[in-house]
Every structure is written in structure tokens, then in C-alpha cells.
Write a protein that binds this DNA or RNA. Structure first.
Length: 349
DNA sequence: TAGACGTGGCA
DNA sequence: TTGCCAAGTCT
């Protein structure tokens, strides 16, 4: 795997190449940590631009610790799983305050920090500090369940997989070993139609031998996504400014910004409509948007009104030129796009 | 332990 | 178009 990695390692903004490492270049634990948090359940392609803007704006963990939380949420907007952004800030503060601005180099030390679970602790200790650790992410689960035809369904199979990864991990270059396995999973040992002919370890793979590559890993059946409905209210002032509110720190889209909405419920009856508006105005239905979250699908009626008298309602007015800089999750950009077709298109600003 | 928690890309 | 999925964590 290490020989394969030396020739085929992906070039990524947060990564030290095997050649650089060989001549003594060491990774920056801050960049390793930041990339690992961003990459949780998120594609490399989606992360790249966010990673660049974060390290440009906050070059060190101390800079991030000193940042305004609102600015961090704004910079994270669009990446999803927003508790990661809160924990990112809390973790930076803990590292600055309790560790003198330096990340712990052990799994236990890292695991104690907010937002760092078993995977990320192992990954940082291996990649940033070259410590031997059993790094197990989704890629590595796939590679190992195929190698050994582990047919226990996930997540029950995790201990079995972890033990196998632990046995396989070398004392030399454990960080490159983990990254090699992840690159293999991302580029060759893919979920569908894996390119076994190109695999450096196909001779060792039980699933390859039996032709059952795509049967692994075994996962439980998905549950059906319920549909929830609600209404969003885009209030526009005479100068074009829009009324925004900050959502509660916990729960869905926690700490992010949005337009006022009703609750999103499974009720399919007349729970929505202009009658559910937070204050009286000449509301007009502008459209219905659909947005798919991890555990439900949302159908959101979007109402618009031009407001001449400031409503007694918590929030602030944001002019159209400052709107893109707000901490707006994609679903909220979609809602604004339904109200202002010229300003927002398909959730992009 | 199972559910909450976003988003965009691709087959 | 629909479903699956991508370097998981927290409760």
C-alpha cells in the first residue's frame, strides 16, 4: 500500500505528499484537523474551496479561536452539518486555551476535544503526528469488509473491522498508510463498480476472488424519508432589504440564519399558508420549494410581502448586497430564490 | 443503540 | 427522476 501510495497519492490542498514527507516536511496539525472536520460526510470537491478560504482567513488555530463565531458560521454556510462549525470553533478555543495553541498528539487527547470522535482522533494522530493508530472511515470499512468478506452488517461490524485495521497498520508511516487506504477506497475500491483490475492488493481480496465485491459492506436497509411541510416568509422593506432571523443554536440548522418560518411538521393539512405568518402583511405565495435533508424531505411554501411598517419581530434587515454574506444554509437560499428569482438561482448566490 | 444532523453529485 | 452516497459525531 505504501509503495502504491508513493506513486498514486492524490494531491490535495491539506496534504503533504509522500515525497515531501520523505525529505522532512511535516504536516501542520491545524490544517490536518480542519480538513478532517470538513471532510466528515462531505466530498473532497465540496471541501476544497471552503478549506482554502478558512486557512486564508484564519491561518492558525489561534486565529480561529479568536474569530467571531458568527463569521465562522457565515464562512461555513453551505457545507452542511452545522454543528461541525460550532464544534470547530469550540475546539479551536480549547486548543488555544488549554493546550497553548498546539493540538494534542495522542488519540485520547484529541478525542477529548469537541467534534473529534474516534475516526478523527485516529486520523489526526496518524496523519499529523505519524503515530500508529487504527484509522477507520467509510472508505477503509469498505476496503476491509471486501478484503476479508466481513459480512456482519454495519455498524455492528465496526469492532471487527477496527481489529483487522489495527493488525494491518505498520509502525512505519502509519499516516501515509491510512491515507493510502482512503485513496484506494475513493478511487479504486469504490462503492459501485470497483476497479479491481487496478487494485494493488487485489490478490489478497476475498471478495474479488469470489466476485462479490459489490456485496460489501453489508448495510441495514434504509428507512423511508417522511415528508414535512412548512411555510417561509420573505418580508421585503421598501429599500429591498429582507428580514432575517437567527435560528436557535441547537437542532436543525442550529445557529444559522434564515427567513422566518413555521415549524416543519409531518402534517399534510392546512397547517401552512399565509395564515401562519409571524405578523400581518400582504403575503403572496411565490412558490413551493423542495429540499431533502438527511432524515426527511421538506416542502416549503414561500410567501413574499412588501412591508411598509416595521413589524414587531426579532431579527434584522439585510440588504440584497449583504445577503450573500449572511450565514444562510442552502435551504434558505432556495427560499429566497423563490421570492427573488433574479437574485438567487438554484441555491447559489 | 438508533436517530438527528446538510448538501451536491452522479448513475 | 430517485436513491445512494462522502474522510462521522453527538445524544
Amino acid at each position: 500500500m505504501l509503495a502504491w501510495y508513493d506513486r498514486h497519492a492524490r494531491t490535495l490542498p491539506w496534504r503533504i505528499s509522500p515525497a515531501e514527507r520523505a525529505v522532512g516536511v511535516v504536516p501542520d496539525p491545524y490544517r490536518v484537523w480542519l480538513s478532517e472536520i470538513m471532510l466528515q460526510q462531505t466530498t473532497v470537491q465540496a471541501v476544497k474551496s471552503y478549506f482554502d478560504s478558512f486557512v486564508h482567513r484564519w491561518p492558525t488555530v489561534t486565529d480561529l479561536a479568536a474569530a467571531d463565531t458568527e463569521d465562522v458560521m457565515k464562512a461555513w454556510a453551505g457545507l452542511g452539518y452545522y454543528s461541525r462549525a460550532r464544534n470547530l470553533k469550540a475546539c479551536a478555543e480549547a486548543v488555544a486555551r488549554d493546550h497553548g495553541g498546539r493540538f494534542p498528539d495522542t488519540e485520547d487527547g484529541l478525542r477529548a476535544l469537541p467534534g473529534i470522535g474516534p475516526y478523527t482522533a485516529a486520523a489526526i494522530s496518524a496523519i499529523a503526528f505519524d503515530r500508529k493508530a487504527a484509522v477507520v472511515d467509510g472508505n477503509i470499512e469498505r476496503v476491509f469488509t471486501r478484503l476479508f468478506e466481513i459480512d456482519t452488517p454495519l455498524p455492528s461490524a465496526k469492532p471487527e473491522i477496527r481489529a483487522a485495521v489495527d493488525r494491518a497498520t505498520p509502525a512505519d508511516r502509519p499516516g501515509d498508510f491510512a491515507q493510502a487506504l482512503m485513496d484506494l477506497g475513493a478511487t479504486i475500491c469504490t462503492p459501485k463498480r470497483p476497479a479491481c483490475a487496478l487494485c494493488p492488493i487485489d490478490a489478497h481480496c476475498l471478495a474479488r476472488a469470489s466476485g462479490r465485491q459489490e456485496q460489501f459492506p453489508v448495510k441495514p436497509a434504509k428507512k423511508e424519508k417522511p415528508v414535512r411541510r412548512g411555510a417561509a416568509f420573505v418580508a421585503e422593506r421598501g429599500d429591498g432589504a429582507v428580514l432575517l432571523v437567527k435560528r436557535p443554536d441547537k437542532g436543525l440548522l442550529g445557529g444559522m440564519t434564515g427567513v422566518p418560518t413555521t415549524d416543519w411538521t409531518v402534517r399534510a393539512d392546512g397547517a401552512t399558508g399565509a395564515g401562519a405568518a409571524p405578523f400581518d402583511a400582504d403575503w403572496h405565495l411565490k412558490g413551493v420549494i423542495t429540499h431533502v435533508f438527511t432524515h426527511f424531505e421538506l416542502q416549503l411554501e414561500v410567501f413574499h410581502a412588501v412591508v411598509t411598517v416595521a413589524p414587531d419581530f426579532p431579527g434584522w434587515w439585510s440588504k440584497t448586497d449583504s445577503l450573500p454574506g449572511e450565514a444562510l444554509p442552502t435551504v434558505m437560499k432556495k427560499a429566497l430564490g423563490a421570492a427573488f428569482p433574479a437574485l438567487f438561482r438554484k441555491g447559489k448566490t
